[in-house]
Computed example of a mutant assay.
Amino acid sequence: MRIDGLEENQMSWMLKPLTWMMKRRVGKVLTPYKAWAYRPGITFMMSMFQQSIESSKVTPSALKRMVCLRAAQMIGCVF
């Protein structure tokens, strides 16, 4: 069973800035994000958590990119 994602006009007002940033950064709203939009509070907090990891100075940015790339390879992500 697959969950049909929400379209932008169905998403909560609190997710509008996140969809705008995702479109600016990636070019479109990614499908998993549309499914997560059913729970806007969790989605918003998860986005804040991801942003805090990306902006952290503890781990070098090159290492973060390599880890993300390797994780994407392991799950078969096309980009």
Rank of each mutant, 00 (worst) to 15 (best):
Thr43Leu: 03
Met45Lys: 00
Trp20Glu: 14
Ile53Gln: 08
Asn9Lys: 08
Ile75Gln: 07
Lys34Trp: 05
Leu15His: 00
Gln10Asp: 09
Arg65Gly: 10
Gln10Leu: 07
Gly41Tyr: 02
Arg65Glu: 14
Pro17Asp: 08
Ala72Gly: 13
Met74Phe: 05
Arg24Gly: 15
Val58Trp: 04
Thr19Gly: 09
Trp36Val: 03
Leu30Asp: 03
Thr59Asp: 03
Leu30Ile: 15
Pro32Gly: 08
Thr43Pro: 01
Met45His: 00
Lys28Val: 03
Met11Trp: 03
Arg65Phe: 07
Tyr38Ile: 13
Glu54Ile: 00
Asn9Ala: 06
Ser55Glu: 05
Val26Asn: 12
Gln73Ala: 11
Arg70Gln: 15
Leu30Tyr: 12
Pro40Thr: 00
Thr31Val: 14
Gly5Ser: 07
Ala62Cys: 05
Ala37Phe: 01
Glu54Phe: 09
Ser12Val: 01
Leu69Arg: 11
Arg39Asn: 15
Cys77Trp: 07
Ser55Asn: 02
Phe79Thr: 06
Met22His: 10
Ala37Gly: 03
Gln10Cys: 09
Pro60Ser: 06
Phe49Tyr: 15
Lys16Thr: 14
Thr59Ala: 06
Arg39Pro: 09
Leu69Tyr: 06
Ala62Lys: 00
Ser61Pro: 00
Gln73Met: 14
Lys28Phe: 10
Val58Pro: 01
Arg39Phe: 07
Ile53Tyr: 14
Met46Ser: 01
Arg39Ser: 14
Gln10Met: 10
Met1Gln: 08
Phe49Leu: 15
Ala72Trp: 09
Arg70Ala: 11
Ser55Ile: 00
Met48Asn: 06
Gln50Thr: 15
Val78Arg: 14
Glu7Ile: 06
Gln50Arg: 07
Gln10Val: 06
Met46Lys: 00
Thr31Met: 15
Tyr38Gln: 04
Met66Arg: 15
Ile75Gly: 04
Asp4Ser: 04
Lys16Phe: 02
Tyr33Phe: 15
Val67Lys: 07
Gly27Pro: 04
Trp13Arg: 03
Phe49Met: 14
Ile42Pro: 05
Ser12Glu: 08
Met1Phe: 12
Phe44Trp: 01
Gln51Lys: 04
Thr43Gln: 01
Ser47Asn: 07
Arg39Cys: 13
Cys77Met: 08
Asn9Met: 04
Ile42Met: 09
Pro32Leu: 05
Gln50Pro: 05
Ser52Asp: 13
Gly27Asn: 10
Pro17Ile: 08
Asp4Gln: 01
Trp13Ser: 14
Leu30Trp: 11
Leu30Cys: 13
Thr19Phe: 09
Val67Gln: 11
Asn9Leu: 02
Val67Asn: 09
Met1Arg: 00
Cys68Ser: 14
Gln51Val: 04
Gly5Asp: 07
Ser61Gln: 01
Met14Phe: 07
Gly27Met: 11
Leu15Ser: 02
Val26Cys: 11
Ser61Ala: 03
Trp13Lys: 04
Pro60Cys: 00
Cys77Phe: 12
Tyr38Thr: 10
Arg24Val: 10
Met74Cys: 10
Glu8Thr: 14
Pro17Arg: 08
Lys57His: 02
Met66Cys: 10
Pro32Ala: 06
Leu6Ser: 05
Met45Phe: 04
Thr19Asp: 09
Gly5Tyr: 01
Phe49Asp: 11
Met46Trp: 03
Met45Asn: 05
